[in-house]
Design a protein around this nucleic acid. Structure first.
Lengths: 306, 306
DNA sequence: GCTGTCGTTGTAGCGTCACTGCATGGACGT
DNA sequence: ACGTCCATGCAGTGACGCTACAACGACAGC
């Protein structure tokens, strides 16, 4: 029973298909298929079953994929076991984050990690839908993801979740808006406004719908923009209002953030990491620094990154 | 980091050398050496160091060998994970035991396992010194070993120990001996007798020395025979007396076993199994049957195998 | 001190195995 | 009904690990 094949099986599960798994493994789909065939032969039971034009893991496949994670963890522990006998944690760590999270965290994180020395950070921002965050753990060591705070915390199977911070969502108004000077706003106040939201399937889309539920209305979404800086520009120009995270936004001079009263709106920012990757000392160090950065930001709501 | 190489490192530790490890792995010493070299390159630290004309594991090597056991366990769990989705436990299990243990346990064990079906037993008797028992776990799934009951229970590193039974040691006399009809004997009674013991380094050699200590004498050993049936034949012919285990001996018509009073003498019978091998369902079943057989024997001291 | 032997380490040759590329078959959407 | 996408099977090729052989170092005996 080959470890590479087990890793492949795990990738097929998290990526949801042979071709996608081949992508993150830097292989051809044919190679993945052959590894699965060999693994199935070793296991003696079917591990995948065809569903439509794709494949899905059987119950046995799921169990084996779970076991594959344990194998990977044990292997990584083995690497760590002899790594302590040499120098400190070293190597490159690949970190992915959604844009506003990247804007909020990466500058401080890079500073702190550079100060420690020995670890090279490879940061990248990824604009993916809610369900796609877990799959990023195949190509990145640490994945900073966000979700509605009241949503289920289920990110996916075989992925460890480390909470970073809860970020309140404020109402972003143009400074020329009639309520720009209000200390707070209720859902009822916002019933008849033009809204700028994000694309459906992305974490903050549901947060706005939840706010609408409080006033028994459906928010009138006139634009769907994912990049918050673009949203800010639109809000400043008076093209609508938006729900924006407090820490990551608010720098635009033409935009005012007003807290929401009578409704609890927020997003939860988590770090996703595969258990085996988490065993790497360098990854553990970066994760700890990430938590520290989040504590700094969450502790003082007015803080800016840098 | 290859799992084969990790397994090789573990074998080098338990076998105490490259050539011996190559033997149990069915490889040439050159292949083992190359695997070690590759593993050392991956680890970044020296895993072995030369001592005399052999090698020894460094601290890093020991740590990595420990981790290798965990990897093997995880891999075996993976196999078991999908094995539950097919049929019951199956396969062949290799069991080794010292001679008198084999005589005592194998017949009943074979009967019980055959009654379950699906598992093929490959039994063998091994006459090795105390320290060599642990190394047998590389070539056998289960190893039945024995040791003086008051000795340290340390069998070796990375091996799981399951106690089977404690077996008292009685004094074996010829039926013509002047004390053959005594109900019990004290160490002082035996101070001036000719003894038949086992070869030095074997478990029961120390038990006799301990009995001698109780009477402040050194037992006069006139023969050293490892096979208890040969010992019985010599005792019956009046060539000396011996310390023999109660359950495994006593069938000879010319020999009488007399309990020892005033001194507690016994041997402890254990099963040695590698943690990864213990994960195999078939091995676990056989181990459970072995424990059951031992309970039968230990429960009624007069029982004979069959 | 020299020699014989044992055990580990390096090198050339070879076999095996896994991956690439391409072709095939099935399933969904237009 | 056709095109597209995805998974799978098959031949070719490359790399990797093993065997066989040779060399070096270390211990024991004369």
């Amino acid at each position: 029973m080959d470890v590479r094949a087990l890793e492949t099986l795990r990738a097929v599960r998290s990526q949801g298909g042979v071709t996608a798994a081949a992508g993150v493994l830097h292989l051809t789909p044919s190679a993945v298929s052959q590894q699965l065939a060999g693994l199935t032969r070793d296991a003696g039971v079917a591990l995948t079953e065809r569903v439509g034009r794709g494949v899905r893991l059987t119950a046995a496949g799921e169990a084996l994929a779970d076991a594959a994670v344990d194998v990977a963890v044990a292997l990584e522990r083995a690497r760590t076991a002899c790594a302590v006998f040499q120098d400190g944690p070293t190597g490159t760590v690949r970190v992915a984050a959604f844009q506003s999270g990247a804007w909020l965290l990466f500058p401080r994180l890079l500073t702190r990690v550079a100060a420690r020395g020995g670890i090279e950070l490879r940061c990248s921002d990824e604009d993916v839908a809610q369900r796609a965050f877990a799959a990023l753990t195949d190509s990145h060591d640490l994945v900073v993801a966000h979700r509605p705070e009241d949503g289920e915390p289920g990110w996916g199977e075989g992925v460890r979740v480390v909470p970073l911070l809860r970020e309140p969502l404020d109402v972003a108004l143009s400074v020329d808006h009639r309520w720009a000077d209000r200390a707070s706003l209720t859902p009822a106040d916002l019933a008849d406004e033009d809204w700028i939201s994000v694309r459906t399937g992305f974490p903050l889309a549901r947060a706005l719908a939840d706010v609408g539920l409080r006033s028994d209305t459906t928010p009138r979404v006139v634009q769907r923009i994912n990049d918050f800086h673009v949203v800010e520009a639109l809000v400043a120009a008076g093209h609508g209002i938006a729900l924006l995270p407090r820490f990551a936004c608010g720098g635009h001079p033409g935009v005012r953030l007003v807290p929401l009263a009578g409704a609890r709106a927020g997003r939860q920012v988590d770090v996703l990491v595969r258990p085996d990757v988490a065993e790497r000392r360098a990854v553990a160090v970066v994760l700890a620094e990430l938590v520290a950065v989040a504590a700094e930001i969450g502790g003082g709501p007015g803080l800016r990154p840098g």
